[in-house]
Design a binder for these strands. Sequence first.
DNA 1: CCTCCGTGATCAAAGCTTTGACTACTTTGT
DNA 2: ACAAAGTAGTCAAAGCTTTGATCACGGAGG
Lengths: 177, 177
Amino acid sequence: MTAEGTNELDFLSFVDFAVAATSSELQDVDPVAMRLVLSLHRVTSALVYDLESAVHRPRGLSWPGFRVLFVVWLAGPLESKRVAALSGMSRAAVSALVNTLEKAGLVSRRPSPHDRRAVVLALTPEGHEVITRDYLAHNEREQAWADSLTPGERRTLIGLLDKLMTGRAAREANRRT
Amino acid sequence: MTAEGTNELDFLSFVDFAVAATSSELQDVDPVAMRLVLSLHRVTSALVYDLESAVHRPRGLSWPGFRVLFVVWLAGPLESKRVAALSGMSRAAVSALVNTLEKAGLVSRRPSPHDRRAVVLALTPEGHEVITRDYLAHNEREQAWADSLTPGERRTLIGLLDKLMTGRAAREANRRT
DNA sequence: CCTCCGTGATCAAAGCTTTGACTACTTTGT
DNA sequence: ACAAAGTAGTCAAAGCTTTGATCACGGAGG
């Protein structure tokens, strides 16, 4: 089974190959769970790489920078801690990232009026300008991806992802601190 | 609409909030495409973080290290370039990562017999030992996530992800070099 | 009041990522 | 045969991530 046609493999078709190859090496592996996770990871990687390289980098934002700006844009002046929770990053990562965004003049740091330990993050006018422009291009690219599915399929996929996200494994899962 | 109940938001429920908030700021945004991409990214992030922190780190592997080992295990011995293509990383990233894996005694580098520029990567016996043990634990955790869905839902989800992966946007998308 | 413990933000070290440059080699075309 | 163009791997700089300290502040009990 090994080394046969291994040369036509690519990032996409590797999923099929991997499921077959693993079953032959290991018993007790669930091929459906394997394929599910592998597909999820590969689609998402490809999607994020495409969005970052086609939309955000050309406009001067990194993918993490976009995520922070997006959260601050929508959920509005917000404590650093909450930005971390909503963007799915660690507090340390937000702190480091905001150094960059602050230097770029997109985000401002202010002390919180109610807690002198806390820092409130807000968009500067320029940051607001940047994220709205950027997000329009982002959403256009999102639509291009969504167009691969019918409207019904889109709803189904969103529903299944929600179910995964609220399921038992997700609740038990390790979370970022 | 802003700043109302913003305090009960978390990483999961932010999706709903974001879709509503964006529509009120921008017209011409497709809320379904937005929700699709946001859900995909959030589920996958949570899943990868859980797998890395619960399975791989405790066993001494990083997530990228696992990916390389996994590819070399299944498709291996393989040129460095092909490992990059199959694992979805850049050639430079593979090169840097293999430095670590080689020091750890898990992967070996050999010159290719047919092309003196190329390097062939293979698992050491210890690397084989590590990845088989590690992958068994990985797959157990994958099963825990897959258990949130019925068997039919799993098949449906895999099918929809495949369709996204082979659709037009994915084919046009920027790819790693 | 004031000690004790919890929490918010930041820093530090180590690792991985990216792009772009560079070297060594191979392939192509004349 | 040989120059030109392309390709494999690596390196370097800059950025982002993680965990684990550290420091400042807040809240509750004695």
